[in-house]
């Protein structure tokens, strides 16, 4: 089960967001990057939602642009995927489990465990739920689809701490030889998912893979550094990511959120 990107250039309405990315994602992958790095657009491109200007995306060897009725090949937790009909969440879940060949009872059971009762699901449309509840709904629907490739964009965002732990435990317990990619800007994931392979993404470009454990030990230094694994050229200056012992810098995990990376340049 692999997702292979070959020199992919993608974006929206003529604007490039994903800049010539080549990568192979398989097994368990952590995709790190600050907001605006292009993580969501990368997921949209893999799902065929964003425009692919050049390059090829292969999911288990199938070109995403030629995919049709490929149930259980790919699922993701982006809310725009679940906007097929403006109906209540209960029926929306039934609809998606029906067309995805997913497990409705399993999904409903997990969602109810997150405090969303059947009654509430019947009363509310997806956009009427809180941001955290929407995240639970779309993430659980993705898991319940039992797809061979699953993409989770910021799955724990907007959730309270206890629900974060609960959902992460469900995510990490996904079994099978499938590909699971979790995109996030929160650095603590590197320690929690230390066994996963990690990619880091900035301004539409990607670096990796390397073990999440190793990435967690990386340090950030201002400016260009010769032995850096990557140097990011931002609008406000350069930042380099260096292995421990190579240079004096702040540990990557100290940032908590990768959004704070830019604050280092102020």
């Amino acid at each position: 089960m692999t997702i292979k990107l070959i020199d992919v250039n993608a974006g929206y309405r003529g604007k490039t967001v994903i800049d010539h990315i080549t990568a192979v994602f398989d097994n368990r992958v952590l995709l790190l990057g600050p907001n605006g790095a292009g993580k969501t657009t990368l997921f949209r491109a893999i799902a065929g939602i964003a425009d692919i200007y050049s390059g090829t995306i292969l999911i288990d060897g199938i070109d995403v642009n030629k995919a049709s009725a490929m149930t259980r090949l790919l699922a993701l937790n982006l809310p725009e995927v679940y906007r097929l009909l403006p109906i209540d969440c209960y029926r929306l879940l039934r609809l998606y489990m029906d067309i995805m060949d997913g497990d409705f009872d399993y999904a409903l059971n997990i969602i109810e465990n997150f405090g969303l009762s059947r009654q509430r699901l019947r009363e509310k449309k997806l956009w009427e739920l809180s941001a955290g509840q929407q995240k639970v709904f779309t993430t659980v629907a993705t898991i319940a689809s039992k797809s061979r490739n699953m993409l989770f964009d910021e799955p724990l965002e907007q959730l309270d701490p206890s629900k974060k732990v609960k959902l992460l435990s469900i995510l990490t317990s996904i079994e099978g030889p499938n590909t699971v990619i979790v995109a996030t800007h929160e650095t603590w994931f590197m320690n929690r998912l230390a066994e996963w392979s990690a990619y880091i993404m900035f301004r539409g470009k990607i670096v990796g893979p390397l073990p999440a454990r190793d990435l967690a030990e990386m340090r950030i230094v201002k400016g260009y550094y010769r032995d850096a694994i990557t140097t990011i050229d931002t609008e406000v200056g350069k930042i380099s990511l260096v292995p421990p012992g190579v240079g004096e810098g702040k540990p990557l995990t100290d940032l908590i959120s990768l959004d704070k990376l830019y604050e280092m340049l102020i």
């Binding site: 065929g48 009725a69 097929l84 060949d101």
Partner: peptide, 15 residues
């Protein structure tokens, strides 16, 4: 409103 869902749904579901 459903346009972006359609792009996904027609590729990766029975529809």
């Amino acid at each position: 409103v459903m346009a972006s869902s359609i792009r996904y749904v027609t590729r990766f579901t029975r529809l």
